[in-house]
Design a protein around this nucleic acid. Sequence first.
DNA 1: TTTCAAATAATAGTATTACTATCATAAATA
DNA 2: TATTTATGATAGTAATACTATTATTTGAAA
Lengths: 224, 224
Amino acid sequence: MKLELQIKMNPSLYLRDPEQSELGKNIIKHSIQLIHDNGFEAFTFKKLAESIGTTEAGVYRYFENKHKLLIYIISWYWGWIQFQLNYQTNNIKDPFIKLKRVIKLLSTNVEDDITTGHVDEAQLHQILISEGSKAYLTNHVEEDNKQQLFKPYKDLCNAVGEIILECNPKYKYPHSLASTIIEMAHLQNFFMNHLPSLTDFSKSKNENDIIKYLEDLVFNTIRI
Amino acid sequence: MKLELQIKMNPSLYLRDPEQSELGKNIIKHSIQLIHDNGFEAFTFKKLAESIGTTEAGVYRYFENKHKLLIYIISWYWGWIQFQLNYQTNNIKDPFIKLKRVIKLLSTNVEDDITTGHVDEAQLHQILISEGSKAYLTNHVEEDNKQQLFKPYKDLCNAVGEIILECNPKYKYPHSLASTIIEMAHLQNFFMNHLPSLTDFSKSKNENDIIKYLEDLVFNTIRI
DNA sequence: TTTCAAATAATAGTATTACTATCATAAATA
DNA sequence: TATTTATGATAGTAATACTATTATTTGAAA
């Protein structure tokens, strides 16, 4: 029996569920490829349609606009990370070890997960690093938020916050520290590769150094 | 005698120096206003020209495109912050107090500085919060970086890194911690106001809580 | 005071983007 | 077999991100 991981998405993100058709899956697959290769600004529905072999109108039947599609794939990524987090920290009792796992999970460039046919997680991780914050840095954040479009991100942040509180129940800023870990795991990676003098990893360019930095930051902060 | 603060800008950012003419100053002034009010995505040279009372072509004589203009005003902001930093930490010997000043300076919504006629620093601070990272989150970061367009940001990061090292000469990640402070001072503010459940300041919505969070984070991390 | 260069204004035009609309056809389903 | 449903093909629009041209104004040097 073949196991397939399905991540439930907020229907407000799409007009027609892309998981339910070949065309839909192709839209997701090629979007990830194109955004990864050329960045979100250069990404258009016309180029996407050409790359799939369909028409612009065909894509518009699935997604209202490219911003919704971006939030879709980003939400998918956070849902997948949440699943990995639950899976990897299952049966671990020590919250400090759990938190280490979280930091590693967020900082490591994952390999493509074969249980998710049309999604390349490695490319998605790169997209999150370069484009992730563009999902919410808009002047319509609040409306998007009201429609719960950022729920997977907030759920993850809450879950990480819970682990932080397990480490130190008296720590006063679990959510802020969680969002700091999540954002910095990505941003320090971006800086390391593109603006290295903003980091201390310019020589190694090694993810493990980011992990060490974040562990040092987090565990010194929450130690009792 | 009237003192006017002039910040020297990288000439690669503009085609004609906006400081040298009334039209140029108006371009800066109205850009800040418009980007502040409607966000960078909605900002166009046509709207800008209309708001000034000139033509689109007039704006294009000063700036190659709106992205360069964004980097211009952001660089201006970092230059101004650097000046404030030097000014405010001048004569302070204790590096811990210096670092506190830095955190406060970065986290506080400044008031308009009257020594800079056509620039509204309060609006600029808001722009940095919502649009700051869009300056470098592009697929042409590296070319932009080669042209030194991010120098003011990197200089500031270095200066903060120096203060961190004064506090603890053995701390291993001064640049990464500096960029974390700078970015988080802005991002936690954005989250606090737009996605509050990602922070622990949703009730107060008070900048001072961000300052406390960052101080706690930083001083626990660098203490010997 | 004239003259000459530089800055600006006015206008037009192009390719691309971000959509919306319509109609025909193919595939799935009742 | 009839009929819904998804897709394909094509067209069209308003806005964006520019470039180009020419005329007019301004201000500084000769």
